[in-house]
């Protein structure tokens, strides 16, 4: 309701100018299209889940619905693959990367959003360029750097850089900080608060949804990462995160669609759970990357 009202896209002509039947017809037409598109959007998920519950043999046939519901498939993926270990690797990667990012990027974003100093425009532009630059552009020297530190074969080359700021997170956090009225910070400064005090006691509590959203973005990014683990950990299956394991396990074990689909569901589940708990902050964050500021 509120969406439609704010949108201004609902018919705004004075009542009576357009006849009610026409409007009702438009309503029906729009909703038929929406429902059709929604079915197309949901269908792939339904087929994936159904296949994950078929027997391995049935998954190789043309049937769409399981004859017997093989819930044991989910236990089987954990039993036949080092899935628990891969989950642990993913969790370690995502949690540490997110924590490190917050420590380094929240202060940086605050400085760019709320402190006036010579050079802030240049630094902000550098952050934007860094955020938009394809990772492949810098990959070779960065790879050589980590290999000289003997850290290839692990996920540390993907975790540690977050201690030195993550460009996209800094950009997003700055966007959020800009939406906090400056008067709050000014009032705290008048009361003798230091800049660090303003940040910790005024900005951080007020920007909690924004910080949550940046944290979720980086968590998902790390959880989903394929290119990073391919570059640094492909030689060492003990260090693989789940997303990389899924892509590679398919190749290694040939066609067992029910297992593969079960694993697809398993690696997606944590992301969906987190999304439903933090939906609002997350959606706001996405909108903010493109629009406001």
């Amino acid at each position: 309701m509120s969406l439609a009202v704010r949108s201004g896209l609902v018919p705004t002509a004075p009542r009576g100018r357009r006849r009610p039947p026409a409007r009702a017809l438009a309503w029906v037409a729009e909703h038929v299209v929406l429902v059709a598109l929604a079915v197309l959007t949901i269908a792939p998920v339904v087929f994936v889940v159904l296949t994950s519950l078929m027997s391995s043999r049935q998954a190789l046939t043309r049937s769409l619905v399981p004859q017997t519901w093989e819930w044991a498939n989910y236990a089987r993926v954990f039993a036949t693959l080092p899935l628990a270990q891969w989950f642990g690797n993913s969790a370690l990667y995502a949690v540490l990367a997110t924590a490190f990012m917050l420590v380094s990027s929240v202060p940086a974003a605050y400085a760019l959003a709320r402190i006036r100093f010579r050079g802030s425009h240049v630094i902000f532009t550098a952050i934007v360029v860094a955020m938009l630059l394809p990772p492949q552009v810098t990959a070779v020297p960065v790879y050589v750097m980590w290999s000289q530190l003997h850290l290839t074969g692990t996920l540390w080359p993907l975790i540690l850089p977050n201690l030195l700021g993550d460009a996209f997170s800094i950009f997003l956090l700055r966007q959020f900080f800009l939406t906090i009225p400056e008067e709050y910070a000014d009032a705290a400064r008048m009361d003798g608060c230091s800049e660090l005090g303003v940040l910790m006691r005024v900005i951080v509590p007020m920007a909690r949804p924004g910080i949550a959203s940046a944290a979720i973005f980086l968590f998902f990014h790390s959880w989903n990462d394929y290119y990073g683990p391919l570059l640094y950990a492909s030689e060492n299956p003990g260090a693989w995160p789940v997303a990389y394991g899924l892509a590679t396990f398919r190749g290694v074990h040939g066609t067992d669609w029910s297992m593969t689909m079960a694993m697809t569901v398993v690696i997606t589940a944590p992301v969906v759970v987190i999304f439903f708990f933090a939906q609002k902050a997350f959606v706001e964050g996405i909108a903010l990357t493109g629009v406001k500021g």
Binding site: L3, E30, H31, V45, A243, A247
Partner: peptide
């Protein structure tokens, strides 16, 4: 279409957003 949807706008938004949540590797495999 979503901007015009008057009934349950949040539900529609969630449905159409959902696939983007899937890790890219998972959606490609699927």
């Amino acid at each position: 279409l979503l901007a015009r949807a008057r009934t349950a706008p949040g539900l529609w938004r969630t449905i159409f957003y959902l696939p983007a949540l899937m890790p890219p590797v998972a959606s490609v495999v699927a």
